[in-house]
Design a protein around this nucleic acid. Sequence first.
DNA 1: AATTATTCTACTAATTCGATAGACATTATA
DNA 2: TATAATGTCTATCGAATTAGTAGAATAATT
Lengths: 149, 149
Amino acid sequence: MLSKKAKYALKALEYIAKQSDINPILISEISAAHNIPKKFLEAILLELKRAGILKSKKGKFGGYNLQQSADEVNLGFIIRLIDGPISLIACVSDKYYERCAECENEATCGLRNVVNEVRDATTNILTNVTLADVIKREQRLKKSKGNKK
Amino acid sequence: MLSKKAKYALKALEYIAKQSDINPILISEISAAHNIPKKFLEAILLELKRAGILKSKKGKFGGYNLQQSADEVNLGFIIRLIDGPISLIACVSDKYYERCAECENEATCGLRNVVNEVRDATTNILTNVTLADVIKREQRLKKSKGNKK
DNA sequence: AATTATTCTACTAATTCGATAGACATTATA
DNA sequence: TATAATGTCTATCGAATTAGTAGAATAATT
């Protein structure tokens, strides 16, 4: 499961991406809109800024905006940044690889083979879906819901 | 990521499944074979027994065997049993469903839509791969490794 | 009875997660 | 230049989870 931190990060980024680029978005606004503890969100946005995803403006009328465009930021990047490995076992992770202590031969491990397949399936989705896509999906879902009624 | 407990459980089950059904397998044997802390493994095997996956025999020449056949036990079941939800967010989980506090409309949430896709991809693999499959994969990997040399 | 195993209860140490407090720095504008 | 509004930073904290341990009880075999 994702940590709350990662979920908050994704929700906040989606919220910022949806707004116009002109006005910086307030932490307190995002916090109120999604019931995210403000102080916790502060730390998260700061981390996203340090990673180059957000930019900030201090002082009055300050706040946050995307630094990259919404179709350049994929979900996999965010999740890895906040939560670490996406894979179920570290022995199949690209960025967080670690050997299994209890495994004799990695190359022939059947479990590793399965877990590797899961990782491929997961990262294929997560690294190909961007913030812009998430917003598009939301709009599509809202439309198709309207049609059904 | 899987917990160590879940990884140990999977490794131990694979080990038991590989042996003949006749002789019960000792905890200490599995523990030694895979570098799994013995006392910790004890608790894990007990849990697997309670879930109906293993059966045990006490006393001399006691130990553990599978209760179900190796092609009936799928990895998803084990992982859910030990670690809980496979999904990245509980709002798309079958067995561990929970509403997101920060989400207004679940049906139109774009993030949920993506996470649901990930869940489908993951569980499709994990619930279709059995212990028997893991062993087969291992054998296949060992063969293809031999051929290359 | 002795031996060898699982079973069960109860801890515990370390780490991670989620969250908070409060001082500080920066910016806009009145 | 004062002030209000905002992000930045450091430090901390409680609760939950994870990983692992100790030791007595129970059961089966010889």
